[in-house]
């Protein structure tokens, strides 16, 4: 099969994509929510609620345009929501309800 016939890779499957974008070596200081989101992954894993492969699958299920647009930990947030809802741990309705409180606090 020639390169031409290969189906296009999924958005996360990045190796060899044509880009000349330089590697930005700057590092941002993590925001608190980023630390908390990374920690949430560890806590959910340690309690056996999710495994790493599920987290990766949750990230890979983000539609390509959104995958490109979201920051690293925003993708994790999307994956957690997919998995926690799928497993019946949380419902979309209760997350929406809690969002209202968070919105009020953070604007």
């Amino acid at each position: 099969m020639s390169e031409r016939e290969k189906p296009a890779p999924a958005a996360h499957d990045r190796g060899g994509w044509a880009t000349e974008e330089p590697v930005d070596q700057g590092e941002h200081q993590w925001a608190d929510w980023e630390y908390r989101t990374q920690a949430l992954a560890r806590v959910l894993r340690s309690k056996g609620i999710v495994v790493t492969d599920e987290m990766r699958r949750g990230i890979e299920s983000i539609p390509a345009p959104e995958y490109e647009a979201l920051s690293y930990f925003e993708r994790w947030s999307a994956s957690f929501e997919t998995l926690l809802v799928e497993k019946g741990v949380l419902t979309p309705a209760e997350i929406d309800e809690k969002m209202k409180e968070v919105e009020e606090r953070w604007g």
Partner: peptide, 15 residues
């Protein structure tokens, strides 16, 4: 193989 489901084989080594 190009399944849409989760797998850990990167595209660029397939074939």
């Amino acid at each position: 193989r190009y399944p849409a489901s989760h797998h850990r084989t990167p595209w660029y080594i397939k074939g």
